[in-house]
Design a binder for these strands. Structure first.
Lengths: 336, 336
DNA sequence: CTGAAAGCGCTTACAG
DNA sequence: CTGAAAGCGCTTACAG
């Protein structure tokens, strides 16, 4: 029931409270004898410094606020785990805020987050409003957007080179001899959804072929299934480029439900390469986002901003690569 | 760059700093006039109370430490999201610690967690050592184990009635006319793994049938696949009861890889009923853990312990139910 | 190297 | 209802 304080340790060790503090402060300056006495007393009493008190005076909480949504999409738990490990390794910890998908509420969340005096904020899969951007700036709390871009120059962000990537995916489909290509895009309210769609259109226009269809799957399984049923009705596409793997699994399930075989009757390509994409039942051809490197970059960015105080926002776009599996035909149609 | 403090608000509002504090304290006692002036000044300045400072003096951080592992198993992200939402709704937030699966390191983690003066700890899918149990007890920090039991009476926990549930699953398989039933158990170092295995054995013994095989899948996909390949070699089982869905998906993939059809050539039943189990490609018959109720119970328990100071540990075991899908044969063999 | 003292931003008795 | 004051558990100049 008792919280041991540095004062109690000091008393037992026969030194001042400041001495105890110094022993537990990395950049210490204490004699070997003092260190020994203090460590002994601390061990006897089971003393551990109160991180909150330290945070108050130092102004550094060693807490990073993480805003995350879409946890049903395997990409995010994976990223969360990597993020947490990377941060833990540097002595930071994550205060997690699960976000509603609507924008206003995210603002409220971030304000709550800032009340905890977090040293930085990583916002995954959410956008932030401009007023909020200003508040964060003003409070001097660095913000890094993860897997989401930001038009305003306020924040740093790290994403894949979504537009280029989507273009590459589309070209792959075109090269494979597909000509009736549909795109089930990610939520158009998100930069990733818009960028990937733009990349799709880039490639189609460059080859002068019309999209078979283009709809917004909202990054939602049920919506993606409904879109797919629609698409399968009547004249069918011969390929569907889906805005992320999570929706692509829904597309695959729906295609099979209709008695068709993915990769044979219709090609499907996703985006992310979550672990499940490699599982035999899905065997999804997809564009791999370099999640390891993305996490590393996000952590480095936020650390740099925390340490430097101010760093001009950086926009990082990393390259991934297409992973070929069974859900999409590779060879040209004529060579079949 | 500036953190606004209550003193600054007080000055602008022309009241004392205590008055400002009262206005922002729920159980306040301030005149309407004071409230008005203070709120105005606070709004002008963009003031928000420093949660850390409040935590220091009140001794309540409104932070719950969550220890979690196995994030690749969809059960945990789902639980995490529910937990976070439930806690957020009550004004608490989660400081997350991703756990290595080995026991010693968990202890270190929990100590780190306690340094943040968390008001309570929810440990999902991990066990805690006895010495640590004592420390937590001693510090007066309530601990609730989630989806994992604890022999020692030290902590509260909430789980499914794993043994009974596993027994029911096994009986279902037996009733379905299966006689060569294998069990790929969860990690035997975990209570859930042991309890489910015990339930499996209960049912088998009651019917006087020998297990076809019993192995430890370690809650790991790769291990489960290896076990399944082994099982498929030579005389095959006609059913496999798998310790959780995450492994069951691996089993299903492996069975198909061998050219067999789950639910036809061999029945498979999982445990959890994660969302993916319902997806057409897996269509997994499984025992549904009542995750909503489990989360609710865990949150209520921890809240009760925080508010009451001391509450004797409670062991909650909730009932779920078997969800029938296509991966396991239902009718008796003879009626086929 | 070391101790006394101030102060981080709050809450909470204590008087009035 | 309200203000002055003490104190939560630390870190960090400041003297010595």
């Amino acid at each position: 029931m008792s919280k041991i304080t540095s004062a109690q340790v000091a008393k037992r060790a026969g030194v001042s409270q400041s001495a105890v503090s110094r022993v537990f402060t990395p950049g210490a300056s204490a004699s070997a004898k003092t260190v020994k006495k203090v460590r002994q007393a601390a061990a006897d009493l089971g003393y551990r410094p109160n991180v909150l008190a330290r945070a108050m005076v130092s102004g550094k909480s060693r807490i990073i606020g993480l805003v995350v949504a879409y946890l049903e999409n395997q990409f995010y738990p994976v990223a969360l785990e990597l993020l947490s490990n990377a941060l833990q390794a540097r002595g930071y910890h994550i205060l997690i805020f699960t976000a509603p998908n609507s924008a206003d509420d995210v603002d409220v969340l971030i304000e709550d987050l800032m009340d905890y005096q977090v040293d930085g904020i990583i916002a995954a899969s959410v956008s932030m409003s401009s007023p909020l951007a200003e508040r964060a700036q003003h409070s001097g709390v660095p913000v890094v957007l993860f897997n989401r871009g930001q038009e305003s120059g306020a924040f740093s962000h790290v994403t894949s080179a979504n537009r280029t990537a989507a273009r590459a995916v589309t070209e792959f489909l075109l090269d494979g001899g597909h000509s009736r290509i549909a795109h089930i895009a990610g939520w158009q309210g998100s930069s990733t959804g818009r960028d990937r769609q733009a990349g799709f259109l880039d490639a189609m226009q460059a080859r002068d072929v019309q999209p078979f269809a283009m709809v917004d799957g909202m990054y939602d399984r049920a919506v993606a299934m409904a879109c797919t049923r629609q698409l399968l009705n009547g004249a069918r596409p011969d390929a569907i480029f889906v805005g992320n793997d999570h929706m692509a699994f829904a597309v695959l399930d729906t295609i099979r439900e209709a008695g068709l075989t993915p990769g044979q009757d219709i090609s499907v390509v996703g985006f992310d390469d979550v672990p499940m994409a490699a599982w035999a039942s899905y065997d999804l051809t997809t564009y791999r986002q370099p999640v390891n490197r993305m996490v590393e970059a996000a952590v480095n960015l936020i650390m740099a901003q925390i340490e430097a105080g101010e760093v001009s926002p950086q926009k990082l776009e990393l390259d991934g690569r297409l992973i070929l599996r069974g859900s999409a035909r590779i060879e040209k149609a004529e060579t079949k």
